[in-house]
Design a protein around this nucleic acid. Structure first.
Lengths: 338, 338
DNA sequence: TCTGATAATGTGAACGCTAACAGTTAACCA
DNA sequence: TGGTTAACTGTTAGCGTTCACATTATCAGA
C-alpha cells in the first residue's frame, strides 16, 4: 500500500483474462459480438484486479467527456437551490457527471472566470442558472459548439431555456384572493434584476385586470428584511388593502413579522400569499398560503432538453411546470368592514 | 459553425506561433526557461485560435485530474448545505474541480453507487459529507490510494476529518441560559443517527453538570414538525422548565409555533435557543437566539487538509470552528415565579 | 466436404498532452 | 578568443482508451 500502487489498465485485464485489450473494451461498453463465456471471464478479471475504466482516456479518444457543467448563482436562495439540486440528480441518473461552479450572478467578470474554469473539461453541455442576469451571449461566445440551457432566462429566442411558470403561479395566487372576495390586493414584487420577478408581476396584474380590479405593485427584493421594512411602513387603511401577493415566502415572512409588531392580524385584517413553499412555511404564524414549484419535473425536463431526448417544442407542450397553490391559514375572506 | 468544428490543439498553436508544441506546453504551465518574446507570441496564437487546453489529455499523461469528488447527503438541510457550498468554493479557489454526487445518506447501497459513479474520474481526493452515518470503511475500500476527508464524522481515528465544534456550541448556549438565571433547562436533541446530535447533547450536559444542575434530554430529529409536536405535549409547569436548548433552529421554530398556540410566552415563560442561524431566525416571533457556525472557515480548513497544505495536527490547533452565539429575543431571564 | 456468411476476436493507430531527455543558442569570464 | 555554464527550445515516447479495420472461428446450407 505504501509503495507506488499502479492502477490496472485495460491491458492488465486483457492479459489476465487471456484476451485482447479490444475485447475487454467491448465488454466494458456492452459492445456486440462478445461470447457470454469470454464476457464473464473478462468481468472476473476486472473484479479481481479492481479495474476501473479511466474516464480521461476515454474522453480523450471519444471527445465525449460525459460531463455537464453548471454555472450557478444565488444558490443560497430556496428556489435556485431546489432547481440546482433537481437538475444535478437528473444529470447523474443519465449517467453523466455534473460539475458546478458558483459565481457571483451580478458580476460578468465572475461569470467569465467561472466559464474559463469549466471550459477546459471538454463539457458536453452547460446549464446556466443565473437568476439575475442574462449571460447567454457570454456563454455562447466562450463556449460555442456545445448546447447551453438557461434556466429562468428572459431571452428565450433561439436557445434552450426553461423556467417555472411564474406568470401562471402568480395569477393563480391572485385569483385565489379574488375568489375569497378581496378587491384591494397589492403585490410586493421581487427585484427587477431577477428574471423571475417580472412574470410574477405580470401574472398578478393579469388576474387583477381580468377581474376588473386595479393592480398596485411595490418593488422590493427577495429578502425577509425588506418584507419587514415594507410591512412596517405600509398604510393598509389608506388604500383599503385587504390582501397581499408577496413575490416569495421570505417577503411574506417579513411582512408578517412587521404586522405582528403593529398588531395587524393575518389573515383577519389582511391576507398574505407567498411563493416557494419553503420548509418553514407551514409553521409560521399563521401558516403561510403559498405556491409550490415542481423542481423534480423541472430537473427532468432540463436534462431531457440538453441531452437532446426532448425537443424544445415538446418541452413547451408538456410544460406542466405550474406551481401548485398550497392553501394554509394566511389567507381568508376580507374583513367585513371593507 | 454548422460543419464539424475541430478544436485547436497544442500543435495548431505551435505551428501558428512558429515554435514546437513543447514550448506551447511550457507557456501553458508557466514553465521555466521561456523567453518573454516567445511567450507572448504563443499567447497571441492561443488567443487567435481560441485554444483551450484539454483537461482529459493532461489528466491522462500526468495522472492528476485536478478533480475532487464530493459525496453529499442531506444537503437540503441548512447546515450541510452551508458546508458543502463553502467547501466547493474553496476547491475552486485552489484551481481544482469539484464534482459532487448526492446520495441517500441512510443507504449504503446508494453510497456505493455514488462512489462507483465518481470513481472512474480519477479523483485526487474525496470529501464525504454524510451527516447521518459513517462510511469511512466503504470509502476506504472502494477508493484506496486517494485522501478522503470526512466532515462531521464520528470516527476520526487515523483519517482526515473535520467538524464544527458542536460540543462547544451547545455548551455556550446552555451557559448563556444559566447565566440568565435559568435552573431547569431541557435539551431537545437531534436524531441519534446524525453525528452532529450527540456532541450537542454532551455539550449541554457538560454545562449543566458544571453548574450543578441536572440535565434532561428529549430525543427528536431535525424537523420543524417534530419540534411542533413536542411543543404541544410538553408540560413545562410539571418540571418547572424555564428554558430549552433546541438542537437546531427548526426544532426551535416548531416549539415556538406550538407554544404560541398554547399561549405560552417566549421568552417570558420559557426561553429558547436554537442552532444554525437560518436566515429566518432574526424574523421569527420572537427573533431567535441561536448559534452561527463559521462555514467559510470550515471550507478553508477542509480544502487545506485534503490538498495537504495543512496537516491534521495543525488543523486541530487552529481549530477556531466555534459557533458564535447570536443573542436575540427568544432568551431572557426566567419568570420570577420559579 | 466445401462455401459463404456472420459472429467473435485481434491489431495498429490516434486522441492531446507532458516527462524526459537531447539539442541549440546566448552569456559570461578569463 | 575559446570554453564553460546557463537559458532556451526541440524530439520522442507514452499515458489508457476507442476506432477502423484485419483476421480468425463458427455454423448453416448445398
Amino acid at each position: 500500500m505504501a509503495e507506488k500502487f499502479k492502477k490496472p489498465n485495460i491491458y492488465d485485464v486483457a492479459k489476465l483474462a487471456g484476451v485482447s485489450h479490444q475485447t475487454v473494451s467491448r465488454v466494458i461498453n456492452d459492445g456486440p459480438h462478445t461470447k457470454p463465456s469470454t464476457r464473464t471471464r473478462v468481468e472476473l478479471a476486472m473484479a479481481e484486479l479492481g479495474y476501473v475504466p479511466n474516464a480521461a482516456a476515454r474522453a480523450l479518444v471519444t471527445s465525449r467527456s460525459k460531463m455537464i457543467g453548471m454555472i450557478v448563482a444565488d444558490e443560497i436562495f430556496f428556489g435556485p437551490a431546489g432547481m440546482i439540486h433537481a437538475i444535478k440528480n437528473e444529470i447523474r441518473l443519465a449517467d453523466y457527471f455534473a460539475i458546478s461552479c458558483s459565481v457571483d450572478g451580478t458580476s460578468s467578470e465572475s461569470m467569465v472566470e467561472g466559464i474559463k474554469h469549466l471550459r477546459r473539461l471538454g463539457l458536453e453541455a452547460i446549464v446556466v442558472t443565473t437568476p439575475q442576469f442574462d449571460y447567454s451571449e457570454t456563454v455562447r461566445q466562450m463556449l460555442p459548439n456545445i448546447p447551453a440551457l438557461f434556466i429562468d432566462s428572459k431571452s428565450g429566442e433561439g436557445q434552450l431555456s426553461i423556467s417555472l411558470d411564474n406568470f401562471a403561479g402568480s395569477r393563480i395566487a391572485t385569483e385565489h384572493l379574488i375568489g375569497l372576495g378581496h378587491k384591494n390586493i397589492i403585490h410586493i414584487s421581487g427585484p427587477a434584476t431577477w428574471q423571475d420577478a417580472e412574470p410574477r408581476v405580470r401574472g398578478y396584474e393579469s388576474a387583477m385586470i381580468s377581474a376588473g380590479l386595479s393592480p398596485k405593485v411595490i418593488s422590493a427584493d427577495w429578502l425577509i428584511e425588506t418584507g419587514y421594512k415594507i410591512g412596517l411602513e405600509l398604510d393598509l387603511d389608506a388604500t383599503k388593502t385587504t390582501a397581499i401577493v408577496a413575490a416569495n415566502d421570505h417577503l411574506a415572512l417579513g411582512l408578517m413579522k412587521a404586522f405582528k409588531e403593529r398588531s395587524i392580524a393575518v389573515p383577519d385584517r389582511v391576507s398574505i400569499v407567498g411563493f416557494d413553499d419553503i420548509p418553514e412555511a407551514p409553521f409560521l404564524d399563521p401558516a403561510l398560503t403559498t405556491l409550490r414549484p415542481d423542481f423534480e419535473q423541472l430537473g427532468k425536463l432540463a436534462v431531457g432538453l440538453i441531452l437532446g431526448s426532448v425537443s424544445q417544442s415538446e418541452a413547451v407542450d408538456n410544460q406542466t411546470l405550474y406551481p401548485e397553490l398550497i392553501i394554509r391559514n394566511s389567507t381568508a375572506a376580507p374583513p367585513t368592514v371593507f
